[in-house]
C-alpha cells in the first residue's frame, strides 16, 4: 500500500486568519481507498485544513496534488471539479428546500426543452430516493417537505447524500459527520464510510470520537496547535497513543510550541 501514489497530497500548507496562524506547514497524505481520520483538540485546525482542500479558504502557501498531479484549488467549484466532495460540520443545507433539491444543489440534472436547460426536479427526486435507500440507509418522513422540519440525523443524511451524489468522486471529506446523530444513524454513517471506501473512494474523516475513528479509519493524523503532530496506523497504535499526541504529552514537543 505504501508504494502507491497517494490520491491526495497536501504539502507545506499555511493559513493565517489575521494574526492567528491556523495552519503551520501542514502535510497530508491520503492513499487510494483508505479512510484517514483527522483528530485534535478544538481549534487545532482540522476544519481549516479541509476547508483549504475544499476551496472554502485559499491557503497562504503550500501545494495540493491529486493523483500526483498538482492542482490549483481556489474555489469550491475547482475543488468539486477535482473530484472532492464534502460534508461540513454545520451541514450546509438550505432549510427552505426539500431534500432532493438540497442533494442536487449545484449539480442539478438538466432536461432540455427546445435547447433551453430546465431543472429536472422529477429526476432529482427519483435519484434521491435511490441514494438514500441504497447508499445512506436513512429514511425520511417526507421528501417534499423543506428540510427545516427534519431532525438532526435526517438532515445529516441529506447532507451525506449530497456529498455522495456527485459523479467522479475521488475524495470524500466529512467534518464530524456523527456529531448530531443517534446510535442508529451513527452506525449507518460509519457503514456508509466503509461502503464509500469499498467502492474505491478515499475518505477523510474528522471526528472527536476515537471509538469511531478506530472503528473505520486506516490511519489517523493528529493535529495540534495548527501543526501536524503525527500520523499513526490504527493497526499498530492504540487509542492511548493517539490521545497522547492530541494533548502533546511529549515534553520535548511542548518546548517547540
Amino acid at each position: 500500500m505504501t508504494d502507491q501514489t497517494p490520491i491526495l497530497q497536501m504539502r507545506g500548507i499555511n493559513k493565517s486568519f489575521g494574526g492567528l496562524r491556523a495552519l503551520i506547514d501542514v502535510d497530508l497524505d491520503l492513499m487510494p481507498a483508505e479512510v484517514l481520520a483527522i483528530v485534535g483538540d478544538n481549534g487545532a485546525g482540522k476544519s481549516t485544513l479541509i476547508k483549504v482542500l475544499t476551496g472554502v479558504h485559499t491557503a497562504d502557501s503550500g501545494e495540493i496534488r491529486i493523483a500526483g498531479r498538482p492542482v490549483s484549488i481556489r474555489s469550491r467549484r475547482e475543488s468539486m471539479d477535482a473530484g472532492i466532495a464534502a460534508v461540513y460540520q454545520n451541514l450546509g443545507l438550505v432549510d427552505t428546500l426539500p431534500a432532493p433539491q438540497n442533494v442536487f444543489l449545484g449539480i442539478e440534472p438538466i432536461r432540455r426543452i427546445l435547447g433551453i436547460p430546465f431543472l429536472d426536479n422529477a429526476a432529482m427526486r427519483a435519484r434521491t430516493v435511490e441514494i438514500l435507500r441504497n447508499r445512506v440507509g436513512v429514511s425520511l418522513p417526507d421528501l417534499d417537505a423543506p428540510t427545516r422540519s427534519f431532525s438532526g440525523g435526517q438532515r445529516q443524511a441529506v447532507a451525506i447524500a449530497r456529498a455522495v451524489a456527485g459523479t467522479d468522486l475521488k475524495v470524500l471529506v466529512m467534518d464530524e459527520p456523527t456529531a448530531a446523530l443517534g446510535p442508529e444513524e451513527t452506525r449507518n454513517t460509519l457503514n456508509l464510510v466503509r461502503a464509500v471506501r469499498a467502492r474505491g473512494t478515499a475518505v477523510i474523516l474528522i471526528s472527536h470520537n476515537l471509538h469511531h475513528v478506530f472503528a473505520v479509519a486506516d490511519r489517523v493524523q493528529v493535529m495540534r496547535g495548527g501543526r501536524r503532530a503525527g500520523v499513526v496506523s490504527t493497526r499498530t497504535a492504540t487509542r492511548k497513543d493517539v490521545l497522547g499526541l492530541i494533548v502533546g504529552a511529549d515534553v520535548d514537543e511542548d518546548a517547540h510550541v
Partner: peptide, 10 residues
C-alpha cells in the same frame, strides 16, 4: 435560505 450553504455548493 442559507447563504453559507449556497457558497459551499459552489
Amino acid at each position: 435560505g442559507n447563504r453559507e450553504a449556497a457558497q459551499l455548493t459552489g
